[in-house]
């Protein structure tokens, strides 16, 4: 297991280097001069030129990339063009907020998704099955920003139960819970829907296996057959998708964070893209890519826990 983990981590390095090259090129080849954007449309040319020089934007691309990579090796992500602060400071402040939002969203999405999926699978063709799968279809189809605005309208504007925006503290505090509730529901809804549909189809497939029929023939109770024998096997693809969903949720939090003014990495990236703040965007996306790779690794390792036949040597 240890060797496997090390091998996987080493193999992630070229992936991350590829990400840095890709992001660097996309940012630098996108039209728009960061110095001009920073200085504003009414700036004097000499001031724009001075800013450009100060930010190192007159250097050839390969020199700029080399400087960025040399900084990375020293864990120095550079300074934000906009704020002048070290990018690592901004990321360290914003990343936990995005992680918190993604984890809370995934938490409720997994519970609701698996429960609804199991509920639908053991009553295939019933009204409850149809209703839950229709709801799941809606969950997948509704755009996150639209759902966010509708939730805000109902629960903040009309009912006044939750604040419309902002983060009021960690989610385990009363204010923090109230502030994360709507963004988490909005962000997690598509994941819950995907997991519900996946759990249902996976469990239905497993319930048709020979060993389940054997268990039933032995006279085991329905609950024991489903929860002890069938569900465990049915959950393997669900775990895979759940792991991937965490990555998607962190990346997808961009829009939710914008709508709910959640102070996370997504908004940092959006503002960075608008301002052509290269260091901020490069470093933030690299962090997100790193998390994605890490989550995939943990998911792989988790298979062995669920299915003892899977071994990593």
């Amino acid at each position: 297991m240890f060797n496997y983990t090390i091998r996987k981590m080493i193999s992630a390095v070229p992936v991350l280097i590829g990400v840095t090259i890709l992001v660097f090129l996309v940012l630098h080849l996108t039209p728009g001069d960061p110095a001009r954007i920073l200085a504003g449309p009414d700036a004097y040319e000499e001031d724009i030129a001075a800013i450009r020089q100060r930010l190192g934007l007159n250097d050839p691309l390969y020199v700029q990339y080399g400087n960025f990579m040399a900084g990375l090796i020293r864990l120095d992500f550079g300074r934000s063009f906009r704020t002048g602060r070290p990018v690592i400071t901004d990321i360290a402040r914003r990343f936990p907020n995005t992680m918190e939002l993604a984890l809370v969203s995934l938490f409720w999405a997994t519970i609701v998704g698996v429960v609804v999926g199991v509920y639908a699978a053991i009553r295939p063709g019933s009204t409850a099955d149809g209703a839950s799968m229709t709801a799941a279809l809606l969950g997948v189809s509704i755009p996150t920003f639209w759902l966010g605005l509708i939730l805000m309208l109902i629960f903040s504007y009309y009912l006044g139960w939750f604040p419309a925006s902002g983060r009021a503290g960690p989610f385990w505090t009363p204010e923090g819970f109230r502030s994360i509730f709507l963004p988490a529901i909005s962000l997690g809804a598509p994941s819950a829907a995907i997991l519900a549909r996946l759990t249902r189809s996976s469990l239905l497939e497993v319930l048709g296996e020979d060993y389940v029929r054997t268990a039933k023939a032995k006279g085991l109770a329905q609950k024991v057959v489903i929860y002890r024998h069938a569900l465990r096997n049915a959950l393997i693809p669900v775990v895979t998708i759940t792991g991937l969903e965490l990555g998607y949720l962190m990346g997808g939090a961009l829009i939710t964070e914008q709508v709910f003014a959640w102070p996370g990495l997504g908004r940092l990236i959006i503002n960075g893209i608008y301002a052509h703040d290269y260091p901020t965007v490069q470093a933030s996306i690299l962090v997100l890519a790193g998390i994605f790779v890490l989550v995939n690794l943990v998911t792989d390792l988790f298979y062995a826990v669920l299915d003892p036949r899977i071994k990593y040597n």
Partner: peptide, 18 residues
């Protein structure tokens, strides 16, 4: 000063006392 990027969210905050 509260940072709220979306104009529609700002209005909801105004109307709900935020």
């Amino acid at each position: 000063y509260r940072v709220i990027p979306e104009a529609s969210t700002q209005i909801v905050e105004l109307e709900t006392g935020g």
